[in-house]
């Protein structure tokens, strides 16, 4: 890796992130693989239920290639009880994904910051407990965000009654507020994790430091927004791929390539943020302390 200690511009940070991801294909593969397995776990009931409802009807091929709502209504009438039962058995996937995100993040941070000296799983083993507590702690501001938006909606509805107001409040304000609010919290959470792993702080201090981070380092917001847009594009493209392009398997493989790239973005995103974190932290150290300090993430990479 070639992390540099000098203050970086946005381009440099992005390049650093991409470089990190390309050097960690196994890490990218792990994130992608877990996501794929989770996808399979959720969709197995769909396969079973639909196969049971349609395999011998003669409509299977027809329904696979063209949408017919009246036939689908019949299919769902037949398959819905099975689907509902099987889906309810798959709800565990959501807390599992929550936990996986919490521990995978600190695993990524740990291995990237140590330049591979500490493996992903070592990081997971060392920091998982505190990372989960930190993630749970961040549910508090998430809930506060929800309450804040609800109060805002209540006030705005009183100020701006009627359907025009309703449109702007419910179609624009709420989604935008949610996206911005959750993104800001995610940004804070990322740096709180770094404080936990790199700064070796307590959960409370890490959270506080993470919350204050974007206020002290505005360029972290730009960096986050840049990766957010890239991630969004990578998620949107598979959705927009015409299913008639390249056949079922062709589309599936194409979509998976984009999702693999999205996993790569996760690694690259963390790589950029770690670079920014280390650079900023180093710059903030008193000169004497900096001299006496052990080589940091960025500094080490210059050696």
């Amino acid at each position: 890796m070639s992390f540099s200690r000098s203050p970086r511009n946005s381009y440099g940070l992005f390049r650093q992130g991409i470089s990190t991801a390309t050097r960690r294909p196994r890490l990218v593969g792990l994130l992608y693989g877990v996501n794929l397995v989770a996808g399979f776990m959720v969709t197995i009931p769909i396969y079973l239920a639909l196969n049971s409802a349609t395999a011998t009807t003669g409509f299977s091929s027809e329904l696979a290639t063209q949408f017919d709502i009246t036939l689908w209504a019949d299919v769902m009438e037949d398959a819905l009880p099975t689907l509902a039962g099987l889906f309810s058995q798959r709800f565990w996937i959501f807390p599992v994904v929550f936990l996986w995100k919490a521990i995978a993040s600190i695993g990524i941070i740990s291995t990237l910051y140590s330049r591979g000296l500490q493996s992903f799983w070592q990081g997971v083993g060392e920091y998982s407990g505190r990372a989960i507590v930190l993630a749970l702690a961040f549910l508090v501001p998430v809930a506060a965000l929800g309450v804040g938006i609800a109060i805002s909606v209540f006030i705005l509805s009183a100020i701006w009654p009627g359907e025009v107001g309703e449109f702007w409040i419910f179609v624009v304000f709420i989604p935008v507020s949610l996206v911005i609010g959750l993104s800001v919290l995610d940004l804070m959470h990322d740096y709180a994790r770094m404080e936990l792993v790199i700064g070796t702080n307590t959960v409370g201090k890490s959270m506080l430091s993470g919350v204050l981070w974007p206020l002290r380092h505005f360029n972290s917001i730009g960096l986050y927004a840049g990766w957010f847009v890239i991630a969004l594009i990578l998620l949107a493209i598979p959705t927009m791929i015409d299913v008639r392009t390249g056949g079922l398997w062709g589309v599936f493989i194409l979509q998976q390539l984009f999702l693999f790239a999205r996993a790569g973005v996760t690694v690259a995103w963390f790589g950029s943020e770690i670079d920014l974190y280390d650079t900023a932290l180093t710059a903030e150290l008193p000169a004497i302390a900096r001299v006496e300090a052990e080589p940091g993430f960025a500094e080490e990479n210059q050696l």
Binding site: L50, A55, Q255
Partner: peptide, 25 residues
């Protein structure tokens, strides 16, 4: 004929994967 079940599953996998990425985000 499992065409529909297979198509639905393959198409939904990508969707669910994206959903999980967003959810975890």
């Amino acid at each position: 004929d499992s065409s529909l079940a297979r198509t639905a599953q393959l198409r939904l996998i990508s969707f669910i994967q994206q959903l999980l990425v967003v959810f975890s985000g």
